[in-house]
Design a binder for these strands. Structure first.
Lengths: 337, 337
DNA sequence: CTAGAAAATTGGAGCGCTACAAAAACTGGC
DNA sequence: GCCAGTTTTTGTAGCGCTCCAATTTTCTAG
């Protein structure tokens, strides 16, 4: 049978051409610009294509045309939910322009970021989006425009930067709690660029209001356990604390656990505010007040900046901050008493 | 300067060869099998490579060698956390063998699964892992081995299948609750293949024990909201219910919300068991009893099956069930009273 | 010192496709 | 029926790499 010929060679453009009785060039034309081909041949070619189950070889196309209409996205960890929004934002501008985005993760220890970039460049991507801690060396000899998304420390010269205004977000969180009358506020922080900016924005606004900043976990991680440990520290050293600002939603979950262990009810006795507006925060059960960093907007901004630089490589790399949003839900309330 | 020549053509193997004073073939040899090249030339070539910032073109390599050492993974949604474990399991066997895995998501409405498969095949992947609802048409004219991971309905002929034993998992959940003395048990189900199997396994064990099965949400989705709605239905129609089995952890979160709204405490008055052993279930705060579907094992099983069929294409596609694990945590307890 | 074997290196064809110039097939107007 | 203009189709030459046979160099032993 013709339908079930499994172990056969992958069909090429020549097979299609022969089967349709035309030249290979004509088949290629049908693939790229069907309107330039007479209806008769076009249909013959299309029939042959589906008959043979032909799929163009991207490798050959890339090699011959030296443009891939693809851009590479390096992310540090698939478990980090923010990249989903980033990707969605990126695709909203890339897809209509016919660009495809290819993912590479650079989990530390497995393949480092340099390897991820190398792999992407080997695939002839036309541009690079770095959603991971960038490194100077990674850019060595990079010949395509790159933009860093969502990180602020050590952005290599020559790369653009579009990121969430984490300072602003920290300030917003502080503002919200101060507005609710809180004056004894703790912050669960972590190491890393984003956490540092959130912390600084928070600290500055808190000090402006003449309130003491109770900050824990600056040099630790940002997991739920880290959040729990930091919350325990704050609540044990400052038992009069009435509000906690966590550097992300997962850490806020740790804060909930610490509160529960101490018999403190949220938000009646302890207000908690998270960051990221992740699915966790949106959950009906957790219903968490959180700062939304608008990663979708970052994504579309990144895409636009990259596209501009692909079209005009002489353009200067852009730097841009995206304003976050405070989403008020059920874990923050007026100060008790 | 030689270091900073940004807008220049991407260096090729010829550039490297010229710069190192050897033939292109020799450069190619260094790249693939350095031990066959004399130390002197090898070093010269390596120096030239890093001097020029040369990266091999994957397109050219693929075309010339007609083997890519890459396999394609189609997933239905990046937000679904189980694919992370699947991927990890796959990489644990692919990486040591030098295979790379390329991701393509097939979110419905954007690019359908057929397009994702087409894209992957265009990249000359040597095998395909489908972690999404498969379709018959997607396999039309596919010339590489494929295996479906984690879905059981409508698996195309010719594709292998490695999946979690969802029947077994449902049975385990029922078993656990019955063992705790519960006799009035509700189940929050959903549409879709996995949910159906979990439901059936659960129902069968429940009926064996002579307990009535209170099942809700069979034709709805599997989000937290769906879980909430189903839990409300069960708790309102059968107020004497003492335990709830949710088809996944997110739905269990909905069950928590429903319990909270009714002033029922978990697990004292209501036991809740989830499915997936997702980060949610592992959370210190939520501390959820859950069925672990061992997606990592599925991943490595898939990888092994695929590798075997790549090496020997005449092999019959394999079908295999992976036994789940019950992880008992703090949301289930002996029946009250 | 030299034949013969082994190791190191090279030239050239070809992977599947596109780009572009050249050829072929149609137009319509006189 | 013929010519200029237009549309459609087709060779041909690469794109950057690998593979393999052929060639050159190096080594071993008599």
């Amino acid at each position: 049978m013709s339908l079930n010929t499994p172990r056969t060679r992958r069909p090429t453009i020549y097979d299609v051409a022969k089967s349709a009785g035309v030249s290979p060039s004509l088949v290629s034309l049908v693939l790229q610009n069907p309107s330039k081909v007479s209806e008769k041949r076009r249909e013959a070619v299309r029939a042959a294509i589906s008959e043979l189950g032909y799929r163009p070889s991207r490798a050959a196309t890339t090699l011959a045309s030296s443009q891939t209409k693809s851009i590479g996205l390096v992310i540090d960890d698939f478990r980090n939910p923010w990249f989903v929004d980033l990707l969605r934002g990126m695709e909203s501008v890339f897809s209509p322009r016919g660009y495809q985005v290819t993912l590479a993760d650079s989990r530390p220890g497995e393949n480092r970021i340099t390897e991820a970039v190398d792999g992407l460049l080997a695939m002839h991507v036309e541009g690079l989006v770095i959603a991971a801690e960038p490194s100077e060396s990674m850019m060595a000899g990079t010949w395509v425009p790159a933009v860093v998304a969502g990180w602020r420390n050590g952005v290599p010269a020559g790369a653009g930067l579009i990121t969430n205004d984490d300072d602003g977000g920290g300030r917003m969180a502080a503002e919200h709690l101060i507005g609710l009358g809180h004056t004894r506020i703790g912050h669960l922080s972590g190491s890393g660029g984003a956490a540092a900016h959130r912390r600084e924005g928070f600290r500055r606004r808190i000090l402006e209001a003449g309130v003491e900043a109770r900050i824990a976990g600056e040099s630790r991680g940002t997991s739920e356990e880290d959040g729990y440990a930091a919350a325990c520290w704050v609540l044990d050293h400052h038992p009069d604390t009435t509000a906690l600002f966590a550097a992300n939603d997962t850490m806020a979950l740790g804060a909930f656990a610490a509160a529960k262990a101490r018999g403190l009810s949220v938000p009646e006795e302890l207000s908690v505010i998270g960051y990221d507006n992740s699915p966790l925060a949106k959950s009906r059960y957790l219903d968490m007040t959180s700062v939304d960093n608008r990663s979708d907007i970052v994504g579309s901004g990144v895409a636009n900046a990259l596209l501009a630089r692909i079209q005009d490589p002489t353009l200067e790399p852009e730097r841009q901050l995206i304003e976050p949003d405070l989403i008020i839900r059920g874990t923050t309330a007026r100060v008790p008493g």
